[in-house]
């Protein structure tokens, strides 16, 4: 009993030791600034040369965001709509590509590299540069006349959704690099003997997918949904974040109001993720053996 307790205490000590450097960095540069920003969201903040001036406002910043701001709620709604639409497409698309690459095909490594490549494009200055130079997704398609071709050959009721999907497709492709990699890692963990056994027993590829592949990569689906949600929401090029940044240095609204906006935005992401975790996270310890019956 005593020995066990000593061992447990030693384990928790090494546990803290391993996390310690991370905790320091996290507290100083994440936790404290986040707390500080929450505090500011209830103030009118003016940054002057002598330092910062704070006037307590209560919930006024939040009220202003919902009731008086001409753009905020509108932009927020448009953005949420598009994101809710995009998350499942990105995840399903990433799974599809991962399944394809996981097939016994040649040039596997090459394809994996190509589909992971947009990760170096979509983050940071590169994508900003691409947008600035007019390499936006839509214009590339337009330049090649693909859209005109579809418009000319199909009735509007067909061409409109197809064009919408094509225009989204490139963005979806660009944002699914990490997710494809995560799915691939998950797929490679599945023992190939299980597949062989199932196909000997006469299971069709379709059944194998639903009863073996899908249950065994289920934890990775959750990881990918969380990753995609966060990736889309915190992308520094999205309209809501641009709006928040604009307000940061406006004199009449200021940093306090911008942080209030950021907190509202954060609560929305939080609710969406909570929803996702409740739906997909319930039976995370799914036993793949049960699926084979």
């Amino acid at each position: 009993m005593l020995l066990k307790r000593i061992r447990r205490r030693r384990e928790s000590f090494t546990g803290y030791l391993f996390v310690f450097p991370w905790i320091i960095g996290f507290l100083l540069f994440m936790a404290y600034p986040i707390y500080f920003s929450l505090n500011m969201s209830f103030h009118k903040v003016l940054i002057t040369s002598e330092g910062i001036q704070k006037d307590f406002l209560g919930w006024d910043n939040f009220k202003y965001a919902f009731l008086s701001d001409p753009k905020y709620v509108e932009e927020l709604l448009v953005f949420i709509k598009s994101v809710v639409f995009m998350i499942p497409i990105v995840v399903v698309f990433a799974m599809l590509v991962a399944l394809l690459i996981n097939q016994p095909i040649r040039f596997k490594g090459l394809f994996r590299a190509i589909f992971f490549l947009p990760v170096v494009i979509t983050s940071g200055e590169v994508v900003k540069e691409l947008f600035a130079q007019g390499a936006t997704t839509i214009s590339i398609v337009e330049r090649y006349g693909i859209i005109q071709f579809i418009e000319a050959n199909l009735s509007p009721s067909w061409s409109e959704p197809i064009i919408a999907i094509i225009q989204q497709l490139i963005v979806i492709l660009w944002y699914s690099g990490v997710q494809i990699l995560i799915f691939l890692a998950g797929l490679q963990k599945v023992n190939s003997q299980i597949y062989e056994a199932a196909s000997i027993d006469g299971a069709s590829p379709w059944e194998i997918f639903w009863k073996i592949t899908l249950p065994s990569i289920k934890p990775f689906i959750l990881v990918n949904i969380i990753y995609t949600t966060v990736d889309l929401f915190t992308n520094s090029l999205n309209d809501v974040i641009i709006l928040i940044k604009e307000h940061m240095f406006k004199i009449n609204t200021g940093f306090g109001y911008a942080t209030a906006q950021a907190w509202i935005y954060f609560m929305i992401i939080f609710v969406i993720l909570l929803f996702v975790v409740v739906i997909f996270g319930r039976n995370e310890d799914y036993n793949p053996r049960k699926a084979g019956r």
């Binding site: 100083l28 994440m30 936790a31 404290y32 969380i226 915190t234 940061m248 954060f266």
Partner: peptide, 23 residues
């Protein structure tokens, strides 16, 4: 700790620029 990390993951980094400067 892990939940705190997920919360940090979700937070808009632009909103913490100024507090981070003070640190």
């Amino acid at each position: 700790l892990f939940e705190a990390n997920i919360i940090a993951l979700m937070f808009v980094s632009a909103a913490v620029t100024i507090p981070r400067y003070f640190v």
